[in-house]
Nucleic acid binder design. Sequence first.
DNA 1: CTAGAGGCCTGCCCGC
DNA 2: TGCGGGCAGGCCTCTA
Length: 269
Amino acid sequence: MPELPEVEVSRLGISPYLVGQQIKSITIRQAQLRWPIPKQLQRLHGATIERVIRRAKYLVIETAQGNAIIHLGMSGSLRIVDLGLTPQLHDHVDLILNNGKILRYHDPRRFGAWLWCEKGSIHTVMAQLGPEPLSDAFNAVDMLVKAKKRVITIKQMIMDNKIVVGVGNIYASESLFAAGLHPATEAKALTLSQWQRLVTEIKEVLHKAIAQGGTTLKDFTQVDGRPGYFAQELQVYGRAGEQCFCCGNTILSQVIAQRNTFFCPHCQQ
DNA sequence: CTAGAGGCCTGCCCGC
DNA sequence: TGCGGGCAGGCCTCTA
């Protein structure tokens, strides 16, 4: 699912309902997510939410008692619903707030996670993460240097969370199309100017996707239940066999590192 | 250390 | 209509 834009859209959607609110209680209907939901999460009881931040594809709900970390996995989504709304199948966690709202976590495949992090410490899942793609720490010069040490395609490299976070399978294909680069190109073969183009397009694609409310293929919804509209903007992802909007050639797909990858053989060399 | 493969889950779509 | 196979937005863990 959810790549960086979808997680950021979720953050923007839930923040106004969460920040400053006290958590009345937590209801866990299914604790077996990617990891079992830790008991310490109950320490949110009575806590006031100070901030909701995003790091990579993780959301962090900060309180004076400690932080809850949420990951949406492949099929997770968050909604703000009114108190009393009957939970549906796969609605695994409710954060019940004192403003009559519930933050409701839905995740059919249960690849997502709810974790607990003590105040002032860094959870192991977030300890090894690379730079944020929308920050200046993600830049062409650093990518060029790192690429020289790797035997890997550019698509694998931009999807490596130690190199740069938040770029998943959809936005990797879309960014590579925008940059005119074949996804299977050896990372070490890219020139500085090609890295500049790719870095710029990754930032551009992510910004545009956030502005459109993310991409809904199946499971993802915005906080109010609406889909994300970036699906209408996709140039290559999921379009194998269809015509390139740019040149009319047939879009191809190829498995790279066990992930399906979409590209235009004419526009991407 | 790196790179590649497997696995976790449910749901959906396709072909028989 | 029913059923098995394959596939899906992520990422941790194990092996070589």
